[in-house]
Amino acid sequence: MNEQSFAFHLNAVSKNFPEKEGELEALENVSLEVPPEQFLCVLGPSGSGKSTLLRLLAGLLKPSSGEILFPGNEQPSVGLVFQQANLMPWRDVWANISLPLELRAVEPQEIERRVTEMIELVGLQEFQHAWSATLSGGMAQRVAIARALIQDPDLLLLDEPFGALDAITRERMGTELLHIWEKRRKTVVLVTHSISEALLLSDRVVVLTRRPGTVCLDLLNDLPRPRSDETRYDPHFVQLSRTLRASIEQ
């Protein structure tokens, strides 16, 4: 009965990478239960294993010890977005977004319908036939998000998706991501270096320590939605961001 109450459940997960001498401990004893449709942000210093955590969730890595539980005990479908948009330069915007559906041999009309819908969702109608190399960083990242969402994944994993963008574009992309998430409720794990980004977007923030990464703070973000630029000046926002900063810097 309890089975559907989580989107994923990390149970004392550790991950070591073999090195020349001995092993490198990237993650140590991380336990985390995340309910469906939660928007989770992961913060932590560089090298704390944030990307490793996402790669474990995506099924690209296996834990060295501990286990990752998913509902129904099978790897859920994931949409993964990287810091660099990672688009295929030999495909135009349209074809980059349709790739996941082509791989699943979805009917052409169905592909047509869903890609058109997705292009509207991320606002790229005018650029649908542009080569990906001609896009700006923000547009490319929108294509990457559209590609991750097109197959309607159970889990949306974003690894510093806005890290390479300028501050203004970054904020706008964050707001757009929230809109998308409100329309298509999904479990989201977003890795970021920005405390305010985490607080404006998430339901919950997890902070990892320096290597080996362990969870040092698990913070419920109860700032009321919808949040706006004004939220930044909310005393509660200030208090939460102070707590987060303290735990990252310790």
């Binding site: 099924g59 993964l80 660099q84 030999w90």
Partner: peptide, 27 residues
């Protein structure tokens, strides 16, 4: 062929043949 694109294909559960056709060959 960039590793990040190989990762992408793996998260999409691409078969060996699909990886060759959609990623390795064009890249």
């Amino acid at each position: 062929v960039p590793d990040s694109m190989r990762d992408l294909m793996r998260t999409l559960h691409a078969t060996r043949w699909q990886t060759l056709r959609y990623l390795e060959l064009p890249a």
